[in-house]
Amino acid sequence: MTDYDVLRVFCGPHGDRGNELGVVREGSDVPDEGERQALAAKLGFSETVFVDDPERGVIDIYTPTTRLPFAGHPCVGTAWLLDVPELVTPAGVVGARLDGEFTWIEARPEWAPPRTLREYGSAAEVEKLQVPPPGEWIYAWAWEDAAAGRVRARGFPGRNDGIDEDEATGAAALLLTAHLHRALNITQGKGSQILTAPQPEGLIEVGGRVRLT
C-alpha cells in the first residue's frame, strides 16, 4: 500500500473538525494518472494530493472521480505539510504562508471549479438543509453577522462518489469572497472555520488551521 499522510484542514477554533485530506508525499510511487485516480477513489477523501516535487511544491490533486487543476483545502493542507512559499498546480502558482496557527494560500477565483452559490435567509435554514440529489455543486450559505463578515455555509458536491457533503471547501470560499468583495469568516459543515481576504490584482487569500491525524 502506498504511504500517505492524513490531515484535517480548516479545523475549528479548538482544533477539531476540518476536512480530511490524503497526501502522498512520494508522488513518484504512483506516477500514472490512472493509478492516481484509482488510489484517490480507494482512499475516499474528498481530495487526495500527490506531491511531485516537495522542494518546489509541485502537486497533483484528485477527487474520488476526477483530477482537479486547483482546489482550496488540498493547497492549504499541503502548504502546511511541506512548509513551502508556493505550490505549483496545473491552474497556476499558488502563494503560501504560515501565520501563527493559520496557513494561508493566495489564488485566483477563476482557478476554482464551478460552484453554485446559493444564499439563504438565515444560518438556521442552512443548518436544516437536507443533502440534495446528485447534480450541480452547491455552496449553501447565509449571513450569521453581515457587519462582521461571519457566514454559515455547507457544501454539497452533487457527485455519486460517496461524498455527500464537504466539511470544508476552500475553492467555494474563494468564489464566495470574490462574489461578495469582502473578507469572510466562514463556519462550514459541523464546525470547520475558513478565513478569506481579497488581495490586490484579483487575488484572494484563504486560510485555516491544519492538523496531522
Rank of each mutant, 00 (worst) to 15 (best):
D3I: 00
Y4E: 03
L7E: 13
R8G: 01
C11F: 09
G15Y: 07
G15L: 12
D16P: 00
G18D: 11
G22N: 06
G22F: 03
R25G: 00
P31V: 01
E33V: 12
E33L: 15
E33I: 07
G34A: 12
Q37R: 13
A38E: 13
A38W: 09
A38S: 13
A38V: 13
A40C: 05
L43K: 07
F45P: 02
S46F: 01
S46C: 08
E47M: 07
T48A: 08
F50I: 08
F50K: 10
P54D: 05
I59H: 02
D60S: 15
Y62T: 03
T65N: 03
T66A: 12
R67Q: 14
R67I: 02
P69T: 12
F70Q: 04
P74H: 11
P74D: 09
T78L: 09
W80H: 15
D83P: 00
E86Q: 14
L87W: 04
L87E: 07
A91K: 08
V93A: 07
V93N: 02
V93W: 01
L98N: 06
L98P: 00
D99G: 00
G100N: 05
E101K: 10
P109R: 04
P114M: 02
P114Y: 03
E119T: 03
G121E: 15
E125F: 09
E125G: 08
E125L: 14
E127L: 15
L129T: 10
P132K: 10
P134A: 10
G135Q: 07
I138E: 09
Y139P: 04
A142C: 13
W143V: 11
E144D: 09
A147D: 14
A147C: 01
A148G: 06
G149Y: 07
G149Q: 11
A153V: 12
R154P: 11
G155H: 13
G158N: 02
D161N: 14
E165W: 03
G170W: 05
A172E: 10
L174I: 10
L175I: 02
T177P: 11
L180W: 03
L180Y: 04
R182P: 10
R182T: 12
A183R: 13
T187Y: 02
G189V: 10
K190I: 14
K190P: 15
G191W: 08
G202Y: 02
G202W: 01
L203H: 04
I204T: 08
I204N: 04
E205K: 06
R209M: 14
R211W: 08
T213P: 01
